[in-house]
């Protein structure tokens, strides 16, 4: 490795824990969110340096992008509420004295957990299944030519299945909180801005194309349902922010069906494949490629819709009514 590469890796490795600590210890929520987004971007760079462009893409799009936007949305809603209290300090400080009991109550469990994790990693048994060679075989057989997608859907179908389940659950939880619908988080001057409207018009087709491309490319290159869903979901978020989408994206039956579609298709394929081959999500020979692509297609749609739906609500402005 070249000297410059070593310096870059060193900087990345050093800045990650520092950023994580600053994000956790920042008293000001807005500052914490900005630090979290920075952490996500640096983490994406680190994944890219480690030769994992799939994870880098997912981290940049979901970890830094969509999560950051959701957190900013929340902080915006909370700070509107706080402004009325007049209790907000002008310049929040990050150095706050905490009693030693609090410090102890945090430090001891965290140390035990870290020790346990370190022990678990160090005492891993030799893997029963030789994953790399299995994946190599599957890729060689030409079902899905990209190793990461092959792992994710051929051998880790369960993980992906549960992930989309978690996403669906998150949307249900947010809905059941009874938050008010987002009107437009931006001030009137911005949401009505012709510049923003023109920008979205310019961006929308490009984002649709790149989303579909990521989905398609996922079978042979870095990409896949979550990355594609994140790009399309980001488009949805931008459209919500500009007020293009809110009136039409309610909570009607169509939206509900769309949210559930990815999970439902995955479940259906799993059950049908169980009836056919005896194993849940054990795809029958010869059908892997088609089934995986079909699942990925519906997953992308549901992921994009879920991410957008998560964005259409804001925290309540005031507790106990009045707003």
């Amino acid at each position: 490795m070249s000297f410059a590469g070593l310096v870059l890796d060193g900087l990345l490795a050093l800045s990650l824990p520092v950023l994580a600590w600053r994000a956790l210890s920042a008293r000001d929520l807005y500052r914490a969110v900005i630090l979290f987004i920075t952490f996500g971007v640096i983490l994406a760079l680190a994944w890219a340096r480690l030769g994992a462009p799939d994870i880098a893409l997912a981290e940049a799009a979901i970890g830094a992008g969509i999560t950051g936007a959701l957190l900013l949305n929340t902080v915006g809603g909370l700070s509107r509420k706080n402004d009325k209290d007049d209790e907000r300090p002008d310049e929040p400080t990050d150095r706050v004295g905490r009693p030693w009991r609090t410090r102890l109550a945090v430090t001891v469990p965290v140390t035990i957990l870290a020790g346990g994790l370190a022990w678990a990693v160090l005492s891993f048994p030799a893997p029963v299944v030789d994953m790399p060679s299995l994946v190599g075989e599957a890729v060689a057989e030409g079902e899905v030519s990209h190793p990461v997608t092959a792992v994710l859907l051929d051998y880790r179908s369960y993980d992906t299945f549960l992930e989309i389940g978690v996403l669906l659950l998150a949307a249900l939880c947010v809905w059941s909180l009874g938050l008010s619908a987002v009107r437009s988080t931006a001030p009137e001057a911005v949401s009505g801005s012709p510049v923003l409207a023109g920008f979205v018009r310019l961006l929308a087709p490009a984002m649709v194309v790149s989303g579909v491309y990521l989905l398609w490319a996922g079978t042979s290159q870095p990409g896949g349902a979550f990355q594609a869903g994140a790009v399309l979901g980001a488009l949805g978020v931008v459209m919500v922010l500009t007020g293009l989408l809110v009136p039409s994206l309610g909570r009607g039956g169509v939206v509900r069906a769309g949210l559930a579609l990815g999970f439902a298709v995955f479940l259906l394929v799993g059950v049908v494949s169980m009836l056919a081959t005896g194993g849940f999500l054990a795809y029958p020979e010869g059908f892997e490629y088609g089934l995986i692509l079909a699942i990925e297609f519906f997953l992308t749609f549901s992921i994009a819709l879920t991410l957008t739906a998560l964005f259409t609500t804001v925290p309540p402005r005031e507790k106990g009514g009045g707003a």
Binding site: A186, P187, A189, V190, S193, V195, L196
Partner: peptide, 8 residues
């Protein structure tokens, strides 16, 4: 957008 919001 940032500058317009700041100005407003």
């Amino acid at each position: 957008l940032i500058s317009t919001t700041a100005l407003k």
